[in-house]
Design a protein around this nucleic acid. Structure first.
Length: 465
RNA sequence: GGCCCUAUCGUCUAACGGUUAGGACACAUCCUUCUCAAGGAUGGAAUCAGAGUUCGAUUCUCUGUAGGGUCACCA
């Protein structure tokens, strides 16, 4: 049952109803992507924009570009010219209508003219009865051309729908849990249930890999596959990412938009690596590995069934590890891209002291964004509101020492020696005070290195005469 | 509430039915050290509860409990 002999075709189906792609969706995308790629298959992105009321302008473009930024590039999708397009559901409307009507003809579905109010009344009066049994005026063909209607699936009563989940095994749900599902809405758009089944079938999706929240909907889809007489794809429901309080990951409690992580200075490969560790563990216990390695050893059946808590602290650690192991050239490139418009940072990274700078920051950044606050004092003298009398004296003493270092000898070694000398001479001078004097903080990047970068002239100009 | 899914350190996770229950993050201590990092060493920290099967249960079964998901003309 789990053997993959046919061509593997997987997809993700995001809805453009938010700012961007949800990090949980990115997680599902990753699993779909590697499952397709490791089997020489095809990965598809399909935009599910059938809810016209929640549609967000520009969201589709944002989702697509964010996916690309993470390197989750689809083989077929909007703008890709796949063989089974269009890949945007709102451009496939006639298809859904045709298939829904086909089901009406074969008596697997029916026209329903009930208004929202009528529906509520019916529900109260007939608690446990199917809509088919209580629907008034169903299938009245004359009203089809004049009145608003929906097409509903005729769900059989008290029937067990069984399916095999590649991660969870057998799952059985009784149809008494499901009322007659709307397939085609009164605005002519399909519901998710119809659209997903029709498209997955037409696009030859072999593996439906989606989040756990869809388990209870799967029987609806299976009923549809059966009604059409289509073969079932493989199903796999991956766990839902959770907030620290264990609820479904939500924007109230966590940053959820995938691009947020990029804008915060997380590396795409670090985020993907971290995501891979949600619900799955490397056989050798490795924490850090490439996407290629992941593809090699990943297997859907090893995915866990518990909903993991998304722990940004561990992501930060992982990102730090990735930054640390980047080559200096690559780190520089990433920073340049990240700080795009910031001239101070650009001149620093392209200046003659760039190697020195990269050396000292590479183990000290959890995110790219952390660079700026650490080097800001190079560009402008920090405000000295904190300056006390003691620091004023210190400033004078340091100046006297630094003046003895010539322009040619101005190096971190020389600077450090002088600072040590001063601390030996005057026991009440602490290193933290020297940091405070220059940086405005009692800690920071190695000061001798930073002062070498700052240069003799500027350094002296910042000290009391 | 019905139904479905799930249950190992605070968190992410390992452990053919037999391990002193392992690793990682975080935390603490120490080493290194110009501060802060990085790196190294050490430490505390878990099998939800109760029955059953078994020589033996984290692992299999049942019950309970807890958490999550889902019950829309939203996906």
């Amino acid at each position: 049952m789990n053997d993959i002999s046919q061509l593997v075709r997987t997809r993700i189906a995001p809805s453009p109803t938010g700012e961007d792609i949800h990090i949980g969706n990115l997680y599902t995308a990753l699993i779909n992507y590697i499952t397709a790629k490791k089997n020489g298959g095809v990965f598809i992105v399909r935009i599910e924009d059938t809810d016209r009321t929640r549609l967000v302008e520009g969201a589709m473009e944002k989702i697509l570009s964010t996916l690309e930024r993470f390197g989750i590039v689809c083989d077929e999708g909007p703008g890709k010219n796949g063989e089974y397009g269009p890949y945007i559901q709102s451009e496939r409307l006639p298809l859904y209508k045709k298939y829904a009507e086909e089901l009406v003809v074969s008596e697997k579905a029916y026209y329903c003219f009930c208004s929202k109010e009528e529906l509520e009344v019916l529900k109260e009066k007939n608690l446990s009865r199917r809509h088919w049994d209580v629907c008034e005026d169903k299938n009245n063909k004359e009203r089809v051309s004049t009145d608003l209607y929906v097409i509903r699936l005729k769900v059989p009563a008290n029937t067990e729908v069984k399916f095999h989940d590649m991660i969870r095994g057998e799952i059985v749900i009784n149809t008494d849990q499901i009322d007659d599902q709307v397939l085609l809405k009164s605005d002519g758009f399909p519901t998710y249930h119809l659209a997903v089944v029709v498209d997955d079938y037409l696009m030859k999706i072999s593996h439906v890999i989606r989040a756990e929240e869809w388990i209870s909907s799967t029987p609806k889809h299976i009923l549809l596959y059966n009604a059409f007489g289509w073969d079932l794809p493989f199903f796999a429901h991956v766990p839902i990412l959770r907030n620290p309080d264990k609820s479904k990951l939500s924007k109230r409690k966590n940053p959820v938009w995938a691009s947020w992580y990029l804008e915060e200075g997380f590396l795409p490969e670090a985020v993907l690596n971290y995501l891979a560790l949600m619900g799955w563990g490397h056989p050798q216990g490795k924490e850090i590995f490439t996407l290629e390695e992941l593809m090699d050893i990943f297997d859907l059946k090893d995915v866990q069934t518990v909903g993991p808590v998304f722990d940004i602290a561990k992501l930060r650690w992982m990102n730090q590890q990735y930054i640390q192991h980047l080559s200096k050239e690559e780190l520089s490139k990433r920073l340049l891209t990240f700080y795009g418009e910031n001239r101070d940072i650009i001149s620093l990274l392209e200046g003659e002291k760039s190697t020195l700078l990269l050396d000292i920051i590479s183990t000290r950044l959890s995110t790219l964004k952390e660079l700026l606050p650490q080097v800001e004092y190079l560009f402008a003298k920090p405000s000295q509101d904190f300056m006390t009398k003691e620091l004023g004296d210190l400033s004078l003493k340091i100046r006297q020492k630094f003046e003895n270092i010539s322009e040619a000898d101005w190096s971190k070694e020389a600077l450090l020696n002088v600072m040590k000398e001063l601390m030996n001479q005057e026991k009440n001078i602490k290193m933290s005070d020297i940091y405070l004097l220059f940086t405005g903080s009692s800690k920071g990047l190695p000061l001798p290195d930073m002062l070498e970068i700052l240069g003799r002239e500027t350094t002296l100009s910042r000290l009391s005469q």
